[in-house]
Design a protein around this nucleic acid. Structure first.
Lengths: 333, 333
DNA sequence: TTGAAAGCGCTAACAT
DNA sequence: ATGTTAGCGCTTTCAA
């Protein structure tokens, strides 16, 4: 046999009709044990694999969900992806994934491309979609989940947490620990990073005594190396007065810590350091780094579950789901 | 019109036949300017989006490639994925991704599932596929690339480097630096990790003087935390005699370093540490960690290019491509 | 350059 | 519980 086997081939081998084979594959309980065994045997024998395109065309169910993340290299999204993939698989959903490199325009193009796969739902990161992207999504009329942050104007469903409040609380943590001239270092400066910075500023504004503060940001991609550089810039800018650094993520925080050690600055004695995302390393370095934890795996999982729950049903407006966050105080502050 | 527009609808609006619309979408040069303009106008007017499933079924070209990696959480594969996605997109290829959690059986199931998408090629990690998986792949008759490691019995194409030789060279590096009682710590113990360990053992066997060595491994997933635990176990096993540790990857190495610092062991004075994969942190910690670098992004990129080059052509046996590796000696050894 | 007809492989809907 | 029939929406093939 040279040609790839199709349903009819399997049916012939099993001595049944094509639809029976189809039923065994789709819902085995609809077929008697006897025939089911025959069919399963025939499937194995022929190495049959169902043609997804034909199945999708005939049933108008693609079994696909689309997912767009801003970065494949940021481990944060990997944990979300794990939640997504692990929930999608047992539900027989294929994931088609796009990386929009933090660009709403790239995201728009990706949405257009991915919608061509007739996904049964789509998961997006953040809420910075272009108007045209929103239009495309509305026309597609499929469930949409916006992930990671909370938004007032969701396209459809929304799950995440407030980066503003997390940034606010982290800054308050620094102030409460007695640091009075805190700095903020940020890379990439995507919307969520900006919200963290806004939280930082608001917390300072709300503090009873006025505090001097310093901010160093760049739109360059985040990395530990950059964390070191930004720390240097911050210390230079503040002429050494800065006594604490809020790093917009843990990569930066780790780099800042290593750099501080190279500069013979005691952490937290000379300078406190805190990060965001609570990566594993942050709890293992010396000193361990204070950070913000959030349920990333769970967000991915829930996003898929929300799509599943919404499938087929008429769209009803669901309140955004706030999964919250947690300040994990450690030795670095 | 409430129903989603199809080719015929667009054709009617444009006053042409369906096939003409199809041609405008696929290869506009095949249609006269006059009709092409009419059609393009009609497409915009109707908001038409081509049905991928029908297109794939009729043309038997899915525009999809399948990729299976052992882990979404291991940053190493993310870099490979970036190479894959960044090469796939400009070539109008969709990637369908599967995570087999280092299990050949899960991989087999994933292959079966992903082949259902009629991918035009498939990229696999490693060479530990089950017999049935290999049968499925042969039957599918599409280009296959096995990635990351080199194998004598490739299914089709192969690109990677020798983990055995890398492990061998790294161990030789330790011996040449004067360490005589080296240890190896390994987690997960997937085939590539085992090859690194085999290289470690061979290097010791080949060394002119006999050396005592220690090995601590676990099949648990790798993590920095585990690196610390394995280091403790190694030191206990060797009663402190161990003077160098070859960690099977950089996560373990970082954890081992942090643990050594907590134990007040000088690195590399009391104990040398080296890792594998050359993650960014390895170059930034104090002391920086010796590691093995390889061209992961490039491997992903090349794998897609190999699929593209092989598409359609009769399968000819191509020699495995060795992308090599590099020992990056740093202060930790 | 354009179109008409004939499926691609599967499943929904309708028998039996 | 099983089978028959008729498409799903597109592209291939062949004809004009």
């Amino acid at each position: 046999m040279s040609r790839k086997p199709n349903l009819k081939d399997v049916a012939k081998v099993a001595g049944v009709s094509a639809i029976t084979v189809s039923r065994v594959l789709t819902d085995p309980t609809k077929v008697s044990d006897k025939l089911r065994n025959k069919v399963e045997q025939a499937v194995r024998e022929t190495g049959y694999i169902r043609n997804h395109a034909a199945s999708a065309l005939a049933s108008s169910r693609s079994g696909v969900i689309a997912v767009i993340i801003p970065s494949l290299s940021n481990i944060v999204f990997n944990e979300v992806l794990q939640g997504i993939y692990q929930t999608a698989r047992p539900n027989n959903l294929q994931v088609v994934l796009g990386d929009c490199h933090y660009s709403p325009l790239e995201e728009e193009k990706l949405i257009a491309t991915l919608l061509g796969q007739s996904p049964e739902g789509i998961i997006l990161t953040g809420a910075a979609q272009t108007d045209y992207a929103r239009k495309l999504l509305e026309r597609a009329d499929i469930p949409v989940v916006q992930l990671m942050e909370l938004t007032d104007q969701p396209i459809d469903m929304n799950i995440g947490f407030s980066h503003f409040h997390a940034g606010y609380d982290m800054t308050k943590h620094l102030l409460q620990r007695g640091y009075r001239t805190p700095g903020f270092i940020g890379a990439r400066m995507d919307p969520r990073t900006q919200q963290r910075l806004a939280g930082f500023r608001q917390a300072l504004a709300d503090w009873p005594q006025p505090c001097q503060s310093f901010v160093q940001t760049t739109t360059q991609p985040s990395s530990a190396r950059l964390g070191g550089q930004l720390l240097q810039a911050l210390i230079a800018e503040s002429a050494g007065k800065c006594d604490a650094v809020f790093c917009c993520n843990d990569d930066l925080a780790l780099g800042a810590l290593f750099e501080a050690q190279k500069m013979n600055l005691a952490v937290p004695g000379d300078i406190a350091i805190c990060g965001f995302n609570d990566l594993e390393s942050s709890s293992l370095v010396n000193p361990s780094i204070t950070s913000v934890a959030s349920a990333r795996f769970d967000m991915g999982k829930q996003a898929v579950e929300m799509l599943l729950a919404a499938a087929g049903k008429p769209r009803k407006s669901i309140a955004p789901i706030d999964v919250g966050y947690q300040i994990i105080a450690r030795r670095s502050t």
